[in-house]
Amino acid sequence: MKNNISQPHAHAHARAVIFDDGWSNAKCDLNILPARGQKGRGAVSNIDGRFERHIHQAVDDGWLGQLMEDAPPRIKTTLGIDGARSVITRNQSPDVPFDRSINPYRGCEHGCIYCFARPTHAYLGLSPGLDFETRLFWKPEAASLLRKQLSSKAYNPAPIVIGTSTDPYQPVDRDKKLTRDIIKVLTDCQHPFSIITKSALVTRDIDLIAPMAARNRASVAVSVTSLDHRLSNLLEPRASAPHRRLDAIRKLSDAGIPVTVLAAPIIPGLNDMEIENIVAACADARACAISHIVLRLPLEIADLFEEWLEANYPERKDKVMSLIRQMRGGERYQSEFGNRMRGTGPIAELIAHRFKLARKKYNLTGRSMDLDCSGFKRPSADGQMSLF
């Protein structure tokens, strides 16, 4: 049984709430049911977005019985159409070394519990929880829209990053090949680009990426969060396994494509003990650079992450959240530019120092976006290339 409750958001671990049905003076003390995760999904629940007028809580009305002992029904992934009229997104953040990006998909089936893009689903009236990883949207006209934007005389080329919010190589791209279509447009125009992914599917497009990389017009960043298969599977349930990401780094590097590793996020008390091993493994896979980002918990992600900890690492929950607060001035998150990626305080400084020493030991640098824009060939609006 579910009820709408008009009150501030109640956490999933709450045991009871007072419910007024509006028809009588009596109020009922309802037992709120704990959220139950699903195999292959990151979020434990489908919490309501911050713009919703009501919250929804599952409660035990005494009639559920055996139903609560059974596994919850599987939620299938659906794919809708994003009718965006442009494909290049601009940003002015001083925390990132680029000002434009492309995200072929909204929502991401990888289901990373920490994904900072989850709150964007609230703009669609959907949940940043399970909806974000099961109700996806794609941009079927992305390639033609990109060509149109590049054809504008007002457009000045600068490196475009593909996959800043959601992974361009999530499972649905095996069929849609939307990311490959976008890369084709960029290669036709000799427009510099970089790709961010945690999927081994990126190796499918080596034939397009490598020739651009040979001209210093393409690079790839692969996210490696953990070498522990169990932890990785819980954090990022439908992303490529750690050994497959390392193999992808090696294949990309062997093809002459510069590969940066993003050790992100670093979660104190969960994967920070792996820092040196991650750097060593990525150096062995012939990555040329590595950088890190500490866990970010903006908006709804904070509640989702605490639910995830309670469901998967209850014995570590208090310690992990305490360490996170020590990096965030006593809060679960701070959004200020300059601090949001790295955190502050002794814990954040120690993490940064360990990465600095590990990079020096294995001769890895920080991330670079120094790509060549001089060869850009502006397409015409009808898709033909300009002769000049």
Rank of each mutant, 00 (worst) to 15 (best):
D303A: 13
L299Y: 10
T344I: 14
D318M: 05
E331T: 12
P346D: 08
V320L: 13
A280S: 13
C288K: 09
E349H: 06
V279G: 00
R340Q: 09
G338H: 03
S322W: 11
E276S: 14
Q326S: 13
P298F: 04
A311I: 03
C282L: 13
F305H: 00
L299G: 06
N312L: 03
V294F: 04
S335D: 10
V320R: 06
G343I: 02
E307M: 02
I278D: 07
P346E: 08
I267K: 03
E331Q: 13
M341H: 13
E310I: 03
I278T: 12
N271P: 07
L304V: 01
A283F: 05
R332F: 09
Q334A: 11
V294M: 05
V261N: 02
E276P: 08
A283I: 05
C282N: 14
L309Q: 00
E315R: 07
D272L: 05
R316L: 09
A263D: 11
I278R: 04
M327K: 08
L262V: 06
A280Y: 07
S335M: 05
A289P: 00
H292Y: 14
M327L: 15
V279S: 01
F305K: 00
L350I: 10
E307C: 00
L323M: 15
V261D: 02
I301H: 05
E336G: 12
L323K: 10
F305P: 00
E315N: 05
R328W: 15
V261Q: 01
I347D: 01
L309D: 00
K317M: 07
I290M: 14
I278N: 04
I324Q: 12
W308C: 01
S335T: 07
P268G: 04
G329M: 07
P268D: 04
A289R: 00
R340H: 12
A289D: 01
A352Y: 14
L297Y: 13
G338R: 04
V320E: 06
L309T: 00
I267E: 09
I324D: 01
P268F: 01
I275A: 03
A280K: 15
I267A: 08
L323P: 02
V279N: 01
K319A: 12
L304Y: 00
I324R: 03
A289C: 01
G269S: 04
T344G: 06
R332M: 08
L350E: 15
G330M: 10
V294H: 03
G338I: 03
D303M: 08
L295G: 06
I275N: 05
E274T: 13
M321K: 11
A311M: 07
P346N: 08
Y333E: 08
Y333W: 14
G269P: 12
Q326V: 05
E274M: 07
S335A: 11
C288I: 10
A311H: 08
F337R: 12
T260R: 01
H292K: 12
K319C: 07
L309N: 00
E300V: 03
I293A: 04
A264S: 13
A352H: 15
A352L: 15
I351Q: 01
A287L: 05
A264E: 14
P298K: 05
V261E: 02
V320I: 15
E276R: 14
M273Y: 15
Q326T: 10
N271E: 10
G345Q: 04
R325S: 14
A264M: 15
L299T: 11
F337L: 11
